[in-house]
């Protein structure tokens, strides 16, 4: 464990942020030293957080802190993140964007496209039902960007981080069907 890095890691995780394998710096995806630090001494970090009442959980190529003492009825963070991803995925095609753009750091779904989705009644209903009182873009900022699930790229497009992509895949994954099934 490196003292400075572990201190940074603690600050990130304790505030409910996801530490991703890569981070977006100057228009490029670059290795995240905090992730590398956890990875290089994973068992020590797991033990450390276990001793203070948390679980250091992995989510694809990312780590986050699971609150072992929390009341399950207060588990709203996961619900909000998933609801936002569901809204963005469902309506991305209606604003002329391929869903793959969410996973490509050069593309992303533009803020202006997301603003087009905001006034839809269904979107407002879902946000309200999940305890989100702000607009769609504000809630994305609070629940995806701040938590390290997504980021805005240089074109002001929303892109999912490693952790965000893992959550997305877990939500919509399905089995592959081969084209050569009867040839």
């Amino acid at each position: 464990m490196i003292k400075l890095a572990s201190s940074e890691i603690y600050k990130e995780l304790i505030n409910g942020r996801v530490i991703n394998k890569h981070q977006y710096i100057d228009g490029l995806m670059q290795a995240n030293d905090l992730y590398d630090e956890i990875y290089s001494d994973l068992e020590a970090y797991r033990k450390h957080y276990d001793m203070i009442g948390f679980e250091l959980a992995d989510c694809g190529d990312s780590y986050y802190l699971r609150d072992l003492d929390s009341d399950r009825y207060k588990d709203t963070a996961a619900l909000k993140i998933q609801a936002l991803l569901l809204i963005i995925s469902r309506f991305s095609s209606s604003v002329g964007t391929l869903i793959d753009a969410l996973k490509d750091y050069r593309s992303g779904i533009s803020r202006s496209s997301l603003k087009l989705i905001e006034p839809i009644d269904e979107v407002k209903d879902i946000l309200k039902a999940c305890g989100m009182d702000g607009t769609l873009v504000n809630e994305i900022e609070k629940n995806l960007i701040v938590r390290g699930v997504g980021f805005w790229n240089q074109n002001d497009g929303l892109v999912l981080t490693d952790g965000g992509q893992a959550i997305f895949n877990s939500m919509f994954q399905s089995t592959q069907v081969s084209f050569e099934k009867d040839l």
């Binding site: 995780l13 304790i14 505030n15 409910g16 948390f54 679980e55 959980a57 989510c59 986050y64 802190l65 699971r66 609150d67 072992l68 929390s70 399950r72 009825y73 207060k74 588990d75 709203t76 963070a77 996961a78 619900l79 993140i81 998933q82 609801a83 569901l86 309200k128 039902a129 999940c130 305890g131 701040v146 938590r147 952790g163 893992a166 959550i167 877990s170 939500m171």
Partner: peptide, 21 residues
């Protein structure tokens, strides 16, 4: 408001228990 305990879907638990902010 929705009951967060049920999550979005039963099988989606990859980030359940994410530390509160």
């Amino acid at each position: 408001t929705l009951d967060p305990d049920r999550g979005l879907m039963s099988e989606m638990s990859i980030i359940s228990g994410l530390k509160s902010h």
